[in-house]
Amino acid sequence: MIQAIAFYLFATMMITSAIVTITARNPVHSVLWLILAFFNAAGLMVLVGAEFIAMLLIIVYVGAVAVLFLFVVMMLDIDFSELRGGFIRNAPLGLLLAAVLLGELVFGILVSSAGDLHIAKAATVAATPAGLSNTAAIGALLYTRYLFEFEAAGMILLVAMIGAIVLTHRQRGDTRGQNVSKQVARRPQDATINLQPEVGKGVQL
């Protein structure tokens, strides 16, 4: 009973906020509605018993990705009415994309209900083996059966990160960076001299 109420609450909230995300006029509002959609998705994950995935969804998407979205949207002063100008021209392409996505979704559901394709399934059928927490089960699978896939994914992310840094980093010759260890190592004796000049005579520095 209470699960059903929670499911319909999360599901309707999620669909509503997803719709508002694409219809909202203000891009910042869009991002905030997107965050609400993420939240409800996490709620649905908790309902199916995948609490680890739910928490990761919030930490990664709400805590990091959406913050960066918000950052960019706030910093860039995008004129969205200008972007909307090409709506009619791009509508057929958008409809085509939507149709392809819908077709793939239906196809995917049909294939998975047909069953018995062993590529995507773990050796054990149950999502979580009995007596093992969700997190431990995922960890055990990731670090044994899917170790190489896991490492490959990590490698790809690392390369992507380094690539982004290399692409955006430029070394400018005319700036002077701060050498912290040099600053810390500097003593008063290196920087100052103590003179006691006689009256009427100048000081030669």
């Binding site: 928490m55 805590g63 969700n134």
Partner: peptide
Amino acid sequence: NVGLLYILAISSLGV
């Protein structure tokens, strides 16, 4: 079971 992750998730919302 995921108490610490929950705290991480919540504290990342503070921003």
